[in-house]
């Protein structure tokens, strides 16, 4: 029972981060039918920039409380990643608009390698510990433990996701985004500058990615140039699980995947008689991906692919 509740809580933390990243994949896919595989690297850059800013401030003897340092770090990381997302779209995807589907996909993969290499140049190949700016106070709920930081992560993720959904459903920009995703040429006829909407989509998705990157790094107390790959792939899985292109689906898929993965990690030992340890938890995400692609490629909340214009 303890393990169960504990793994649900862990899954919720992990899952809300996946959901935040999955939204970036799904928004871009919804607007332009493209999987931005470089999104994981944006997440990584968000974590790295935050760490650099905090370390830099500490190095120059700025004496501020930990949470304030973190806030400054995030305040730099978000616009940095927004700029990165903007540049990624302009440089890598816009020139390929209207090309065959395979071309931007290959570019996306190439771009993600380029960004990783750049990260190595700037931040090196080693794991970078997250500066000790936060206390990891532990709260116990019915025998399961969770840190205050993790509670904060869950609450933040939900607040951001609700904010995004409200923006998309209720504002003029959100309406233009939905119109563009359904029919870009008619949206243009209505006066929507489709290029601006696409840029906005990348920029917003990247801001969410930056925040997610900081969350991952604080939660695991470290960052690494390669961290974006695995977390990106899992968030992508979450987006597919929920139905790619569907915002609610990305949230549901992220949380579900986080929970599946945590429960899997918690029980894999006893399930396999100790043969596989919890370090095999990654296989669950990809089993989910494979099963979804086989049995329900449109995902939980997505419509059939054929319905897309």
């Amino acid at each position: 029972m303890d393990t169960f509740l504990q793994q649900i809580l862990n899954g919720l933390v992990l899952g809300s981060i996946y959901a935040l990243i999955a939204l970036g994949y799904t928004m871009v896919y919804g607007i332009m039918g493209l999987i931005n595989f470089a999104h994981g690297e944006v997440v990584m850059v968000g974590a790295m920039v935050t760490i650099s800013v905090i370390s830099g401030l500490t190095h120059f003897g700025v004496n501020l409380p930990g949470p304030v340092l973190l806030l400054i770090g995030v305040a730099v990381a978000i616009p940095s990643c927004m700029l990165l997302g903007f540049v990624i779209e302009r440089v890598a995807y816009r020139p390929l608009r209207g090309a065959q589907r395979l071309a931007p996909l290959i570019t996306a993969i190439g771009l993600s390698i380029v960004l990783q290499q750049l990260a190595i140049l700037i931040w090196g190949r080693n794991y970078i510990p997250f500066p000790p700016v936060l206390d990891h106070d532990v709260v116990t709920i019915f025998g399961a433990s969770i840190t205050t930081l993790q509670i904060f992560i869950i609450v933040m993720c939900f607040a951001i996701m609700v904010g995004l959904l409200v923006m998309v459903e209720r504002t003029r920009l959100g309406r233009a985004m939905r119109a563009t995703s359904q029919n870009p040429s008619v949206a243009g006829l209505m006066g929507v500058n489709v290029n601006t909407i696409i840029s906005a989509t990348f920029v917003i998705g990247s801001a969410l990615g930056a925040i997610a990157g900081v969350m991952v790094a604080t939660n695991y107390d470290q960052a690494h140039y390669y961290m974006g790959f695995m977390i990106g792939l899992k968030a992508f899985t979450a987006a597919v699980l929920g139905g790619i292109g569907n915002l609610g689906g990305a949230v549901a898929g992220g949380i579900l995947l986080g929970i599946i993965e945590s429960l899997g990690a918690g029980y894999i030992g006893s399930l396999t008689g100790g043969f596989l340890g919890s370090n095999y938890q990654d296989i669950f995400a990809f089993m989910v991906l494979i099963l979804v692609l086989i049995f329900r490629p449109s995902g939980l909340l997505g419509e059939k692919m054929a319905d897309r214009a």
């Binding site: 003029r172 309406r175 233009a176 939905r178 359904q182 040429s185 006829l189 209505m190």
Partner: peptide, 19 residues
């Protein structure tokens, strides 16, 4: 017609007044 099928009728009309 170029209707935005997944927008409501009202939202479609509002798109007309987008600018």
């Amino acid at each position: 017609r170029g209707i935005f099928g997944k927008l409501t009728v009202e939202e479609n009309l509002l798109m007309g007044a987008y600018v």
